[in-house]
């Protein structure tokens, strides 16, 4: 994984600090050209990895990248699935099984129905989970997806429930079907490490909030610091600026000081912001490359 990964929250109206800012970003990035323009800035600044949710609008981005390999020879996606609101809204509207039906892939429906149907009858979750993963992965067909993430809403729900088996199913499916490495996004890093240890997933890729003010680091900062020092895993830090609550240099200097953090994922909506972040990371991690 590269040192610096580019995230997508800014494109989809997600801002942990301000609804106003989220709305103005949603307005601006309604136009796919505006999104591509920022992605181009990121790519041209040396960033190669776009870590994105499987929001339906990402299909517009993947189409662009797919059709212009000359412009984006090294462009890499890290899909993060599922885009939870899609499911949450469907569950509210048509119930849990109705929501499942709605997201089943249209192609190979019979095959899918068999896989899903059998496992529904046996109360095995394998078929359902792999089916959902495949549905989410459709938009990345033909593109590089070396790491595939399970989103924190799902990871943390399964984690709380004690449904560890689902992590193993996800892990195996992602490796076998996509030749990719599974990643897990969580707001509960120390606890997730215990669960993944318990089912024997070694050196997992885990993306979690890691920032100087302890924002959304559930269980508290000491547990995170201890995990970074003592546990065997590949850490990606997100929310390092805590949505802007920490000044960039201060935030990144703190991350640099933690050690054992392999990557940082950040979002930005201007070329200037992207460049300044790249510059700072280059300086602080010198001589290691940014990407």
């Amino acid at each position: 994984m590269d040192r610096l990964l580019f995230g997508d929250n800014q494109f989809f109206g997600v801002n942990h600090m301000s609804e106003e800012k989220a709305r103005s970003q949603a307005l601006r990035f309604q136009d796919i050209e505006a999104v591509m323009s920022v992605l181009d800035d990121a790519y041209d600044s040396g960033l190669r990895t776009f870590m994105c949710t499987t929001h339906e609008r990402v299909a517009g981005i993947t189409d662009r990248i797919r059709t212009d390999p000359a412009r984006y020879p090294n462009f890499v996606f890290y899909p993060c699935m599922p885009y939870a609101h899609k499911y949450a809204n469907a569950v509210t509207e048509v119930g849990m099984l109705g929501a499942l039906k709605r997201v089943l892939p249209e192609e190979g429906l019979i095959k899918a129905a068999l896989r899903g149907g059998k496992s529904l009858a046996r109360k095995d979750v394998d078929g359902i989970i792999t089916l959902l993963v495949d549905a989410e992965m459709k938009m990345f067909h033909g593109l590089q997806t070396p790491v595939i993430f399970l989103q924190n809403v799902v990871v943390d729900l399964l984690l709380g429930l004690g449904f560890d088996e689902a992590f193993r199913i996800f892990d195996q499916h992602v490796r076998k079907r996509y030749g990719a490495v599974p990643g897990f996004i969580t707001m509960n890093l120390p606890r997730l490490l215990d669960s993944l240890d318990g089912i024997g997933l070694e050196n997992p890729i885990i993306c979690s909030n890691i920032n100087k003010i302890g924002f959304r680091m559930a269980g508290g900062m000491p547990g995170y610091e201890q995990a970074l020092r003592e546990r065997q895993f590949r850490a990606i830090a997100m929310s390092v600026f805590a949505s802007g609550a920490i000044a960039p240099r201060e935030a990144l200097e703190w991350v640099r000081g933690q050690g054992n953090i392999e990557s940082i994922v950040f979002g930005a909506s201007s070329a200037a912001h992207i460049k300044s972040t790249v510059r700072l990371v280059k300086e602080l991690w010198n001589p290691e490359p940014v990407a």
Partner: peptide, 10 residues
């Protein structure tokens, strides 16, 4: 980000 206290599980 400033006002919210930590929780045991998020």
């Amino acid at each position: 980000t400033d006002l919210t206290g930590p929780v045991w599980f998020y």
